[in-house]
């Protein structure tokens, strides 16, 4: 039977991660904008939430591979189908890559990857300062790309909900 909605685990993961990823983008943008006490406070949240997103993203990838999603509407133009599929590949790639790059860059920068006071994650790269520089640059750049992609995703979801009214929005929100 063809499903009309995403499986329950997929929906729970989607909405949990939506909240976490939006929070992360705001925490990241907020922390580099300030030198007040908010800076260390936001930085302290950024690391554990990032690792949580990495774990959830890997679980979600497993759920995605084992649960068939509902098909896109048959009358969706080919270009929109391609945009939908392509953007979802990119969203998955960024959900996994962003925390990994963050973890890798902190390792290369010689920083302790502190999840919370007393709990330090092992490094995944050797200490290499120029590599840190490039990874840190990539982390910032990809964060903007991620934000734009999420805007497009949100815009497309609302387009399905309000303009096409084709059940795509409900397959995740319903």
């Amino acid at each position: 039977m063809t499903p009309t909605r995403f499986a329950l685990p997929a929906r729970i993961l989607h909405w949990t991660m939506a909240a976490l990823i939006l929070a992360m983008l705001l925490i990241g943008a907020g922390m580099i904008s300030t030198t007040t006490a908010r800076y260390p406070a936001l930085l302290a949240w950024h690391r554990p939430i990032g690792i949580a997103i990495l774990i959830l993203a890997l679980i979600r990838l497993g759920v995605r591979l084992t649960h068939r999603p509902p098909p896109l509407p048959a009358d969706l133009p080919a270009l929109q189908v391609a945009a939908a599929k392509g953007s979802h590949y990119l969203l998955y790639a960024l959900m996994i890559a962003m925390p990994l790059i963050g973890w890798a860059m902190q390792s290369a920068g010689g920083y302790p990857v502190i999840l919370w006071k007393g709990a330090v994650l092992f490094p995944i790269l050797p200490h290499a300062v120029q590599l840190y520089g490039w990874l840190r640059f990539a982390h910032g750049l990809l964060a903007y790309a991620f934000f734009l992609l999420i805007l497009a995703h949100l815009g497309a979801a609302l387009f399905h909900a309000l303009i096409r009214r084709d059940g795509v929005f409900g397959s995740m929100a319903g």
């Binding site: 920068g109 300062v129 120029q130 840190y132 520089g133 490039w134 840190r136 640059f137």
Partner: peptide, 9 residues
């Protein structure tokens, strides 16, 4: 640190 890192030592 992030500026000098990318510039290289």
């Amino acid at each position: 640190f992030r500026r000098r890192a990318i510039e290289g030592p």
